[in-house]
Amino acid sequence: MDFSSALRVSSSGLTAQRTRMNTISSNIANINTTRTDEGGPYRRKDVVFEAIPDGKTFGDVLTALPERNLNRVQVTDIIPDRKAPILKYEPNHPDADEKGYVAYPNINLMAEMTNMIQATRAYEANISAMQSSKDMAMSALEIGR
């Protein structure tokens, strides 16, 4: 257990929250997208966070109690939302079906904005944690001065 592991853990949090932020940005940007590579409207994406023990080796993780309890966070998957798309009657739209309905992504802008604020706050919390670890390391360098 050293300073670098604290910084590693905090930076994993930063990476995870940034990935989440990117996903949210993509959701907001594509709120009206009706064409995608996989066909159909854009589907809202969601990140899956997972806690990963931060041991250097398997032995570390197995034996050392503090190491076993030190968890990094990782985005293990980005999953598409399975909600049905919103149908709007727009017969003139090129992507309209035979009845004149266009499938739009089922994205709630308010929910996305809330998630975005949450991601920002979590990111800031990780920055603070990193800052105080750095602070501690710097003052430890002053021992015996």
């Binding site: 050293d2 604290a6 905090s10 929250q17 966070f49 030190l70 990094r72 966070v73 944690a129 990193m130």
Partner: peptide, 21 residues
């Protein structure tokens, strides 16, 4: 020990949004 607590707390903050953590 305080370094250890700092690390564990940093891990808690990093995992503040991880389900089941």
């Amino acid at each position: 020990f305080r370094l250890m607590r700092n690390n564990i707390t940093a891990a808690n903050i990093a995992n503040a949004e991880t389900p089941n953590y």
